[in-house]
């Protein structure tokens, strides 16, 4: 162990060390956050501390007076946290990890940049780390060491996002669909969406489109009552399935996610609809297996038909590109973390 520098340490449990059911038990609900800070500051007498709590990780950062003291705190902290969660330390320890000094700085840099996330390069974690730091600062729990480490980690995360490919490309079916729709229509505020089938898969892609501004949405389902129920949830219009051919002529985006043995949309129906569309492109996403749209429809002019395999192939390619960028990004972040650690030791 490096005995120089401040006694910064980290006790954590993440998706890398613990299965979902364990993470659920270790999660810190907002009402318990105060108790954790009280434990770290008053019981363990730490001058600086910070709690990072997301769906995939619970991490407790602290700064002890010396590295040796930090090392000694490990067992006690584990006992206290286990007690707080009403668990035995022996049941918790296998799912945790403990880091000290420069390793902590490097870890914070990786986390903030999304390198340690389950979905590499995701951006949500950056906001979560910022919120946690801001919360700690408001409580007066973050001091000179954590201030420097976290602020520098934000700069490093921005650098990584701007200069490497770790955040590039959509990696979920919903986000790939949104990116494709954006490439066709730009903003989605004026796009008319038709969802055929009111199941979970279709709704999840619909939600992604709505998040990006799609407002004019119509849902068609075999059972009108079900369509109405889902339409109310998404604040849109419900229609019966037999109105689909007529709606094809005015829709911009058609999401097909109906559980059916035979195609819901035929080549002939689409050919008829395209004749009335004056060259406006129609983006069709067929999420169903078996497919809801006759594959031959892809040959029609101005029809852009993507099925589940197409979307998955795009998502996988993007994920592969992100993974390829991780190693290069990690090298630079390690170097940046090292500089921060050295500057902390020089204080």
């Amino acid at each position: 162990m490096d005995s120089s520098g401040p006694g910064i340490f980290l006790l954590g449990s993440t998706h890398r060390t613990a299965p979902l059911e364990v993470r659920e038990r270790l999660a810190v609900p907002p009402e318990r956050l105060e108790a954790i800070y009280a434990l770290l500051r008053e019981k363990l007498n730490l001058p600086e501390c910070l709690v990072l709590n997301t769906c995939n990780r619970v991490e407790l950062y602290g700064v002890a007076k010396t590295p040796a003291e930090a090392d000694a705190l490990r067992v006690r902290l584990l006992e206290e946290i286990s007690r707080l969660h009403q668990l035995e330390p022996g049941d918790v320890e296998p799912y945790t990890f403990f880091k000290q000094q420069s390793e902590v700085v490097k870890h914070v840099f990786d986390v903030a940049a999304g390198l340690d996330s389950q979905m590499v390069g995701e951006t949500e974690i950056f906001g979560q780390v910022k919120d946690s730091y801001s919360d700690a600062a408001q409580r007066g729990a973050a001091g000179p060491v954590l201030n420097r480490v976290f602020q520098k980690s934000f700069q490093a995360a921005k650098w990584a996002r701007t200069n490497t490919a770790i955040g590039r490309g959509a990696v979920s079916i919903g986000s790939v669909s949104v990116e494709l729709a954006t490439r066709m229509f730009g903003g989605l505020a004026h796009s008319r969406v038709l969802l055929i089938g009111a199941g979970e898969a279709g709704q999840s892609v619909l939600q992604a489109l709505r998040t990006r501004g799609a407002r004019d949405v119509t849902i068609a389902s075999r059972t009108l009552a079900h369509a109405v129920e889902v339409a109310m949830k998404h604040e849109c219009v419900a229609v019966e399935l037999n109105r689909v051919p007529e709606l094809l002529a005015r829709a911009d985006i058609v999401l097909c996610a109906m559980d059916t043995e035979t195609p819901v949309i035929t080549h002939a129906q689409l050919a008829e609809a395209t004749g009335r569309r004056a060259g406006v492109p129609l983006f069709m996403i067929d999420l169903a297996v078996p497919r809801n749209v006759e594959p031959a429809a892809a040959e029609l002019k101005n029809i852009f038909l993507y099925n589940l395999d197409d979307l998955a192939a795009i998502a996988n390619e993007n994920l592969k590109n992100r993974q390829a960028a991780v190693d290069a990004c990690r090298v630079t972040l390690t170097e940046k973390a090292k500089q921060v650690w050295e500057s902390l030791g020089a204080r």
Binding site: G169, T182, R183, F185, G186, I314, E317, N318
Partner: peptide, 15 residues
């Protein structure tokens, strides 16, 4: 169905 390179940088068809 090209999603990488120059394709993802271009403006939308509508624009």
């Amino acid at each position: 169905k090209r999603f990488t390179g120059i394709f993802r940088l271009l403006p939308s068809l509508a624009e």
